[in-house]
């Protein structure tokens, strides 16, 4: 029994890292632009499907991955210019409806291109599972955890140590003041969407070997990214990571010990519970943002 619990913990952390990555992209864009991007999950689905197609076309895997990450990043930037930027002065709700529209369009597009089949990628590294504390850990899980840690350190380095990062932070704190000292919030928003496209695609590619990749997988991934972000308080980067891992572990235990069909419902129940009981998130403090 303790072995099984350990096993579930590891698969939960793997899943949770992916949710955390999606949540990180959401929270970062939300902080920078004030837009809650409901199309975030679609970036993961399209990134993953693109990489699979490129790989199947005979392109070496590393090149295929980098290419698809770059393409989805461009897609993110393109969508920002085409749909978010023209409506930048609209209310938050108008913007969220816009991103919902984008997400169903992207999903339809993915359906058009890839159909309803299920795709998969080979694991990044071959070899059997590693045994940690009596639990078998898939090497791909290590890759996923690695990606999460790498992303976090990159984000930290960018925001804390680089000049551009500080400029972005300034634009988050006070748009007008940032504009006065020559920071263009429009450019910052563009780059935020590029970045979240790249991050989403990377997350999608890294989980492709351990889950089924379908055109509509982005929807639930996006929803779970939100749940993770909401658990963490929607504007906290650390909160998003903790929220993602928490949700992943909860889901894993629910699927392993209760019923796998209720896994998706669990995420939504957690979302509703957090929204209704503690909208500022489990970790968040009530900031100046209106809830």
């Amino acid at each position: 029994m303790p072995d099984q619990l350990m096993q579930l913990l590891f698969s939960g952390l793997t899943l949770g890292s992916i949710y955390a990555l999606i949540a990180l992209a959401l929270v970062t864009t939300f902080n920078i632009t004030g837009v809650l991007n409901l199309a975030q999950g679609e970036f993961a689905a399209i990134g993953s499907l693109l990489a699979i197609s490129l790989y199947a076309a005979g392109i070496p895997s590393t090149v295929a991955f980098i290419l698809s990450i770059a393409l989805v990043a461009m897609l993110g930037g393109l969508l920002e210019r085409a749909a978010i930027y023209p409506a930048r002065r609209a209310s938050g709700l108008t913007l969220i409806i816009i991103t919902i529209g984008l997400s169903i369009s992207l999903r339809g597009l993915a359906l058009l291109i890839w159909g309803t089949e299920t795709y998969s990628l080979p694991a990044f590294t071959k070899g059997g599972p590693l045994f940690i504390g009596g639990a078998a850990v898939n090497p791909q899980s290590i890759w996923i955890l690695g990606l999460a840690i790498l992303t976090l350190s990159l984000l930290y380095t960018f925001f804390e140590l680089t000049y551009a990062g500080k400029a972005v932070k300034a634009a988050v704190v006070n748009r007008t003041a940032a504009r006065l000292v020559g920071i263009n919030p429009g450019t910052v928003s563009f780059w935020a969407f590029m970045g979240s496209g790249a991050l989403g695609a990377a997350a999608g590619i890294f989980i492709a070997p351990v889950t089924m990749t379908t055109y509509d997988m982005g929807f639930m991934l996006g929803v779970k990214g939100f749940v993770a972000a909401v658990i963490g308080g929607l504007s906290s980067v650390g909160g998003a990571v903790v929220g993602g891992l928490l949700l992943g572990v909860l889901e894993s235990y629910c699927a392993g010990l209760v019923s796998s069909g209720l896994k998706d419902a669990l995420a939504v129940i957690v979302l509703l519970a957090v929204l209704l009981v503690r909208p500022q998130g489990l970790l968040g403090v009530l900031g100046e943002r209106k809830i």
Binding site: L36, I97, V223, A265, I269, L271
Partner: peptide
């Protein structure tokens, strides 16, 4: 639910819809 505003309300109602839909399936 209606205490929530803007995207929190959108997210909450969306969550509710997904929950009901999952229940139909499960």
């Amino acid at each position: 639910a209606l205490k929530l505003r803007e995207f929190y309300l959108a997210l909450g109602t969306m969550g509710f819809g997904i929950l009901i839909h999952t229940m139909f399936n499960e």
